[in-house]
Amino acid sequence: MHEMALAEGVLQIVEDAAGAQGFARAKIVVLEIGQLSAVEPEAMRFCFDAVARGTLAEGAQLEVIAVPGEGVCLNCHKTVPLAALYDPCPACGGYPVQATGGTEMRVKELEVE
């Protein structure tokens, strides 16, 4: 999957931050990954370990904060939790539910030294 390219994106963000903030090592990288985003956290961990080798983030721990999915049901107009893009509305059982949250893929913060 595309997690390799995304892991390289994470590493670039860490390296940009190292240039701007002057740190030598990233020990923990905290990501926010939405439940409805295009990222599989386990694949992300695997790829990040691979791309971080030989960099200032080598061996860094990747912490993933899962952001729950949320949508607006176009049937009953309620804002409801949504586990998958194709799920029915948990309130009324109808379709479709337009995803409104939980689609993010962000680097939230770093523990550095």
Partner: peptide, 14 residues
């Protein structure tokens, strides 16, 4: 060790 706030989209470069 210290914490650095980043808050950037992973795909920001793309």
């Amino acid at each position: 060790a210290r914490m650095v706030q980043i808050e950037r989209d992973i795909l920001s470069k793309n």
